[in-house]
Design a protein around this nucleic acid. Structure first.
Lengths: 161, 161
DNA sequence: TGCAATTAGCACTCAATGGGTGCTAATTAC
DNA sequence: GTAATTAGCACCCATTGAGTGCTAATTGCA
């Protein structure tokens, strides 16, 4: 239910860590130990990011990974795409994403039909759009918020507590 | 990968439909046929929403469902919670959500530890927060966008059509 | 009174996938 | 040469989402 995978969690955590460590080379083991994460899985996530070209790897003892680009140039959307695979173009849900940013605008008919039929696609589109414009650098900053909202403080539930 | 379930898709679609049809009673069959959705599954979604008190049901022939409250008072967050079940309080990911809006603030330690460890939680929190403040009425409006962003106009797709 | 259409509720199957592991090879610092 | 690392492949297992079957209860209508 509206969750990204663990792999993405590990991957983003690693990216933030690497962003905090400048051009330094850090091994998968270091990262996994630092955050108490399953080190094998962190390694898998790092491999994905490396294959996608977002990290550079250094093999051998005292090897590791480092960012291939500035954290200000790497978006959360790109990282997630690398970690979870490109959205499948089979289902209509994904097609909206594809035509949104990952591909050409060929099947716009399909998408617009879906837009009418399913309000959910609007939501997911918007979320992804936000991902596409949020950088790892922003994510790494402690005061990060994904959604800048200018409206009412919006009486949250905890008010009643 | 960051997707809501079909059940939620069907449920939100139905809610939007009901919102468009005022106080009218509409059967699950009518809705499913109108959007060419599997009618049994739409019925399941409607049951969930009814159990949660967001819809009122009328049994018997010519029965159906209608909104139990104004579409302006029903949030996407509430609907999703009803359709997908409350976030499980076992995993840390969900705990962030719980302490965010669904429960007391007791285990804030847990959450804040997670916040540091996982940037992903920030993202998901923000998404949920947005769900909590988006109403079905807003969702039903054709020019709906979940994220009001003051930055670049960001070339929408439908513009090109 | 009976029939048809509906909601209500339970249980079940099937396929997909996410999380995790095993194993081996290639590379490199020491 | 050894240990630590990245690279790549294949695999298992538990969860869960999607969908179906079935039966009961309710109600409008002929």
């Amino acid at each position: 239910m509206l969750k990204l995978t663990k792999r993405t969690e590990y991957g983003l955590t690693a990216l933030v860590h690497l962003a905090d460590h400048g051009g330094e080379t850090v091994s998968a083991r270091k990262i996994s130990q630092h955050y108490s994460l399953p080190n094998r899985l962190v390694a898998e996530a790092l491999k994905d990011l490396c294959r996608a070209g977002h990290l550079k790897s250094v093999r051998g003892a005292s090897g590791g990974y480092l960012l291939a680009q500035s954290p200000a140039d790497l978006t959360v959307g790109e990282a997630v795409a690398a970690l979870e695979g490109a959205p499948k173009s089979t289902d209509c849900e994904a097609k909206a994403l594809v035509s949104m940013g990952f591909g050409a605008l060929g099947d716009l008919n399909v998408e617009s039909k879906c837009m009418i039929r399913s309000p959910l696609h609007k939501i997911q589109e918007d979320i992804w759009r936000q991902f596409e414009r949020t950088t790892i650098q922003e994510l790494a900053s402690p005061e990060f918020t994904l959604l800048r909202d200018e409206r009412s403080p919006h009486t949250q539930l905890q008010n009643s507590a």
